[in-house]
Write a protein that binds this DNA or RNA. Structure first.
Lengths: 222, 222
DNA sequence: CGGGCTCCTGACGAAGCGTCAGATATCCTT
DNA sequence: AAGGATATCTGACGCTTCGTCAGGAGCCCG
């Protein structure tokens, strides 16, 4: 079904063998150095030789564990996917009614902004690779956001069932657009400073749009 | 003040001279081939040699007019900026009240989706280069969207003055988030098919969010 | 202690980049 | 219309980075 390549059970080296203790340690060291150098250097300037040297090994060794630099970053991104659950917990924590609901909206905006700040180095490469048409990274992004998306869609569908949304509201499309907004604005919030817009204002704005789109009600005045 | 490099008045070749008739023709031919090959090939696989050969010339000639492939695409992107005016016309065409306003919202969503489909090859590289921290492309994107952004902010500010928005609404931040949403969803609308969301649904969803965020009113039922 | 497996090395050929000295085309002057 | 000056083009070259591979070093166990 799925390729054996990055199979979840067995880790394989380039030559097909299953790495032992020493091999796994080297692989891990290479990943650490990749992550560390990704924060300092621009992704395009990340050379295999440099990573290998930083990890105290040689380029040949790097290629034993990863097909290229992107594959190494893909592994880093993969480790990040599980943390997408943080978003779901916020979405499902309240009924989204009244002030508590608006607080959830704010919390969700905060969580997105914080998450993107925390993982910006890796996430930037994810977006970059997706723009270049790399399906492996599109898959990672989908897995990261799928849960929140579905959770949000469920809440919206619920509100629709209670007559708070007109029939033409599509819960899945609405959730998708909201998640896209959250992810993209979080990713580029520094770029807004050109227009004199501070992150705090973006946070409130996104929370208001979120609250209205989910509940169909105006946000409570603060 | 600004660099003379890409000065709006005088076009310069690599050696500093102002190109004549033949030179400008060659430059134009190179740009055309770049645009054409960008649609067929992935940006990463775009080689200077290939572009030059396609244009019936040699790599040396390419470097006479552009520092690298990115610079050529930057020139293409620059030519696109002026068309951003299409968005402004829609924003300013009505008072945003009632059905006519909602029609504007729909039209704006359509225009964004259409524009991104039309220029996807170049816009993809723009986003890509921005993610890599290239200020020249960030500048292009800003110039492309600045007008709509300001126009939208003005409309929102107007509605706020009329008491349709609470004081905590920041027109500039709201406009920024809306434009970000429009641009990003338009750019990735095919990616939504994973969730079974069709472009038509995205269009309606964005128009609703747009209408509410601008006017503070629920969209009229269709 | 030695055979066999695991793991690592660093030099190498391929490929793309950007440059430059010289060749060619075009224009202008007289 | 010839001839010189300027504009434009060429393609081979040196450089860098990439990914590979044949062989060497380390480790474990009988």
């Amino acid at each position: 079904m799925a390729t054996d390549e990055e199979g979840s059970e067995e880790l394989r080296a380039a030559d097909g063998r299953v790495p032992g203790r020493r091999g796994r340690a080297t692989r891990h060291r290479l990943l650490d150095c990749t992550a560390q150098m990704l924060r300092a250097t621009s992704y395009r300037d990340l050379k295999v030789v440099d990573i290998a040297r930083e990890a105290g090994t040689s380029p040949g060794t790097f290629y034993q564990y990863f097909a290229d630099v992107e594959s190494a970053i893909l592994a880093l991104a993969d480790d990040m996917v599980g943390q997408g659950h943080r978003f779901v917990e916020i979405v499902e924590s309240t009924s989204w009614r009244g002030r508590a609901g608006y607080a959830s909206a704010l919390a969700l905006a905060d969580e997105f902004i914080g998450f993107w700040d925390e993982h910006q180095a890796v996430l930037r490469v994810v977006d970059l690779a997706i723009d270049e048409g790399d399906g492996r990274f599109a898959n990672v992004r989908t897995r990261l956001l799928n849960e929140v998306n579905n959770a949000l869609a469920a809440v919206i569908a619920d509100h629709k069932k209670q007559g708070r949304h007109p029939p033409e509201v599509d819960p899945m499309a609405t959730a998708g657009v909201l998640v896209a907004m959250l992810a993209h604005v979080s990713s580029h919030h520094f770029g807004f400073e050109f227009w004199g817009v501070r992150t705090g204002d973006l946070r409130t704005t996104m929370a208001r749009i979120l609250y209205w789109s989910v509940t169909g009600q105006k946000p409570p005045t603060t």
